Simulated assay, not measured.
Amino acid sequence: MNELLQQIHRIGVVPVIKITDPETAVPLARALDKGGIPVAEVTFRTQHAAEAIRRISAEVPQVLTGAGTVTTTEQVDTAVAAGAKFIVTPGFNPKVVDYCLERNIPILPGASGPSEIEQAMERGLEVVKCFPAEALGGLPYIKALSGPYTEMKFMPTGGVNPGNITSYLGFSKILACGGSWMIDSKLIAAGDYEGITQLCRQAVDVVLGLEFSHVGINNDGDAEAQRTAAALAPLLGAPTGENPNAMWSSSSVEVMKSQWKGTKGHLAISCSNLDRAVFQLERRGLVFDPDSAGTSADGKRRYLFLKDEIGGFAVQIIER
């Protein structure tokens, strides 16, 4: 997967923006970036799309800006000349797709069925847009499509909202989701871009799904770990599990059999996707220790630790 697709994957949600006044383009892009969503798909549903892309690209270059609802090669040229970094089409138009591929222009074409997916695969594409996702059948429909097309990834758009985006992103074949619920036209009309930023932050929080997982208590060897677990038993019940490294006094207390991470132990915060969590938390000023990367005892969940302890505890971000 190329760097542009990886960047979109890390962000997780792509705001679909319809610009009716070019003056709103830059403050809107800044609000998106401030809210943790530095990407925008500016749709060619209005005559101001190209100008909006030009202004965002020039004044807010950290926002990855693409052009959406592109249906002609002329619109491709106009969008790229304005600064668009990628093209999104509502359907699979072979003429537009081939035009982009011949010019090394990243494109996410619409593909709502097997025939279009096969056309995309024939051209070496890795990701397609699924539109209108909910109307087509939502996540169950995409999962069904993924059966015969295991290498293809999807960007569902249309009907995605805070109530279902977590389910979509929980499926490994979803690159990211397109949506517009955080682009409230009433807030834009009122010039309330801080309100847009808050909606973006809420969207990011939903995407990340950060929540407390468990606390790890360091011990000096198996014997001390056994004593610690026994002392906790009247409060938490009998140990619920054990592996070579630790015992579980409950689902929220990991009794380590050695002095592992942290002076006192570690605090584990779970997330829906480690790459997205690291991307967003680094934007919030947190620093990770790249040498601390690992996987859970069952080998299924990736984790990474913050560089610094908090209150004597190492802090682990781990996938659910």
Rank of each mutant, 00 (worst) to 15 (best):
I317D: 02
N219H: 06
V128F: 08
F305A: 13
Q47S: 13
C100H: 01
A25F: 13
G137P: 01
L210D: 02
T150A: 15
T65E: 10
G159F: 07
M152D: 00
E3F: 06
L210S: 01
I8V: 14
C200T: 02
K153S: 08
L306Y: 08
V315E: 00
K129C: 07
C177T: 04
V287E: 14
V160M: 07
F288P: 08
W248S: 13
A314Q: 05
D291Q: 15
M121T: 12
P109A: 12
A225T: 07
V127S: 09
Y303F: 15
L208G: 02
G179V: 01
G68T: 05
E254M: 13
E23Y: 00
V60Y: 10
K307S: 09
S258I: 02
R227W: 00
S112D: 13
Q6A: 14
L236T: 15
A229K: 04
T157I: 04
E41F: 08
F92E: 10
G237P: 07
E102Q: 10
I11E: 08
M256V: 06
T65N: 09
P148I: 10
S272G: 10
M247L: 15
E122Q: 14
S249R: 06
E102L: 03
C130S: 11
L232H: 06
G66I: 05
D205M: 01
C130F: 12
M1I: 06
R10W: 00
W248I: 12
P106S: 07
M256N: 12
L136R: 02
A277N: 03
L304W: 00
A314V: 07
P114C: 03
M121D: 11
Q62V: 07
R55T: 11
N219K: 02
P239Y: 00
E194V: 05
V128D: 08
G209R: 04
L306M: 11
F92M: 12
A84D: 03
G91V: 14
V97N: 04
